[in-house]
Design a protein around this nucleic acid. Sequence first.
DNA 1: ACCTGAACACCGTTCAAGT
DNA 2: ACCTGAACACCGTTCAAGT
Lengths: 200, 200
Amino acid sequence: MPRRSQHSKDELRQLALEAVLVIAERDGSQAVSARKVAQEIGYAPGMLYYLFESIDDLILHANARTLASMIRSLRTAVQRKSPQRALLAMARQYLELAQHNGRRWQLLFEHAMRHDAPVPDWYRQQTDALFRLVEEQLAALAPEKKEKEIQLAARAIWSAVHGVCLLAVTGKLEVGGKVPATRLVDSLVRHYLAGWVASA
Amino acid sequence: MPRRSQHSKDELRQLALEAVLVIAERDGSQAVSARKVAQEIGYAPGMLYYLFESIDDLILHANARTLASMIRSLRTAVQRKSPQRALLAMARQYLELAQHNGRRWQLLFEHAMRHDAPVPDWYRQQTDALFRLVEEQLAALAPEKKEKEIQLAARAIWSAVHGVCLLAVTGKLEVGGKVPATRLVDSLVRHYLAGWVASA
DNA sequence: ACCTGAACACCGTTCAAGT
DNA sequence: ACCTGAACACCGTTCAAGT
């Protein structure tokens, strides 16, 4: 019946995205649903399909925000440090984000695995921006390496850091000794870089 | 109304677990549901709650099977190889499993992230068995290292391998060049080990 | 003891209908 | 153009009731 139009389409979109993150942080990432998002912003569930293609599309856009703020955070971690120290700082900061913003982070990587559907291009460009930050430091660290080698190493090391953060946050790494996650990240970055730089 | 009792409780449990994996492989990991599992084995949905605590408990048990077969597969990959070659072979085999049994693997790691509930002990022991395989090889590689160091390195390297496999399988690593995932795994294991062994 | 069938409180998504 | 409300086809889970 109604026709509210209090907000523009884009304002509504922003409200919905905000609501996704609020719900994820408040009630857990599993609690995010189209119906709850709609309720949170005071609209009927069907309205969301006028803003987004699907609930997956909605969550993906919300995750893009999280990703963007993560990239900003990593960028500031670099500062004017040497390449090695910058990479170490980035990895630590990534872990810090994973541990501190746990639920937002969970929404990001949980959802990434849903469906076999390929990730849309606009989203891929965001993740590529993250790899580029790593590539920059690797190139500064080893200027003699070819671009291909830099790309490969950036993907190897960052996937590795991601894996450590993932298993650490989901509590799958503790054993009797309870190794602190930051030690794992440090060990990984330090030794991989040492081996990589030394290699022909 | 009925009381069938054609199968023992344990037989029924095995049937249900089998059904979970069949559905995951046939229809995708997202398609696994209590109702579908019940239908697959020809029972009413409610019956499953007489066998398992919840759908999560059911899937966790099915995943334990996948994990066990993965561990067996990694064990055979070791053979009589040198520690370095054994670790490389294990990592490659892990990637191979991830790529070949994609949907089973997806069910395993998707589900691992659901809920904040801690993973039960009987499941943790399974994952620990995997780390122990890695620790064995690291201990053989560097007998002078302390046990603590071995444990830390095993978790670091295996989380890293896991991360590479995860992002590779979910297609988040390709860029223009399309780096083959096995190169990433190789680079990671080789360089990390080189750096680790060389470190004091 | 073993299992059903119906019920409850949820989902995502579509779409005719109202302004 | 913008949004609702109801409907459809799904969920997980519980539990009285039947044998």
